[in-house]
Structures are given as structure tokens and as C-alpha cells.
Amino acid sequence: MPENRNGATSPAPRGAAKALSAEAVSGQGPDVRAERDHLAISRLADDLLPALIAKLTAGGLGEIEVREGSWKARLRRPAGSDEGRGVAAWSSLDSHSGHGHALGRGPAASHGRGTAEERARRAREEEEAEELARLPIVATSPAVGIYQPRKDLAVGIRVRAGDRIGTVDVLGVREDVIAPADGVIGSSLAEAGEAVEYGQELIRIELSENARGLDANGADREAAAVLGEA
């Protein structure tokens, strides 16, 4: 398992998110929804945010996004900033939220309340994690500008979460395109020199069976990289 989605953290339950938003749309008044949103925000702020900041500071990640209920939280380390000075954004999920939000699907904070319900939720989350691990991860554009992939980038190269895999030129200032997870460079979704918008999908990062197998067996990551390049 890549380190940004290991046992210490687990993704928010997507199934629960669906159920919750469906419920919110059907029949509930705005007051109920507003109250729920307020509760969600305060809980996310109290529990989740500190955990996410810690995660962002500790790992080499450029950005983390977590969804919970009908809300998502995104933390991004500003380009070239010191450690830990992340910027958080909250948003309510919308019907198109799949677009451009594929970053850092994995980590969510686990809240330390050991109720049965909590244990059941964790079990669900672990299942979700398994499912998510099989999906391709996509590196997205940090800004609106002109995209250039890293010169030596090619399909099959192994990258680690937090690696710079390209840049987006914003009026002469380069902002880094960061690999959101450990994996292998997959297909390109944008051309070098192309104008890209914020959040645009640029490069697939694949978690190939091969790479994961090696990781599981404790094989050397360098060896995996060599295999990937071959």
C-alpha cells in the first residue's frame, strides 16, 4: 500500500456520502440541511482539519482532499511554501464533483471514539480503501496557465507522492504539478504547452498490480522503478 493511504488513515465512506446527500435532497427542509451543514463543518474543523494538517506536514503531499457526508475538505500546500502552511478549502459536493477532484483520495482522519458504530464505519472505510486503491489516480493542475510535463517523464516511470511531475506557468511563475500518490506514470491527459485550467486532469498515476505486489512483498522501491522504466 502506498504510504499516504495506509492503516493510520482511511478514506471517508463514499457510500455514506451518497446516502446522506440523497437524503438531503429528498424531503428535508433547508433548516434541517443548514443545521446538518453547520454540524458537519464544525466537526470537520475540529476533528479532521488538525489531522489533515499533520498529514500534509509529515508527508510529501502537495494536496489532500477528503470527502465526508455531503462535504469535502481540501488542503493544499502553496507552491514553494514552508512545511505545514497549507490552505484549506471546504465545499459542498455537487453533481460534477468527480471532475478534477481525483487528488489524494485516500487519507481521512480516524476519529478516536471507539463505539461499535465507529468500528463498523472503519470496516466500511477499509473496504473503500481497497476499492479506491484499484482506481487510477490523476494529477491535476494547480493553477490556470501553460502546462509543461517534467522533461524526463515517460509512461511507466515510478513516482512518489509529492514528486514534481510538471509545471504550470502562471504569468512566468511556475507552479508545480505534484504526484498525488505513489505509483507509475500512466497516460497523459494534456499536451506539453497546452493552456490548462485549475483542477484540469493532466497525468494518470497508476497503481499497477506489479508495483503493488512488489510493495506488498517488501521489495526495493528502486527495483520497482527500474522495472517500470524498462
Partner: peptide, 8 residues
């Protein structure tokens, strides 16, 4: 139309 940044 072009997306220029996050909700903030």
C-alpha cells in the same frame, strides 16, 4: 469558460 481556482 475557464476554471481559475478553488472556491476560496
Amino acid at each position: 469558460a475557464i476554471c481559475i481556482g478553488p472556491s476560496d
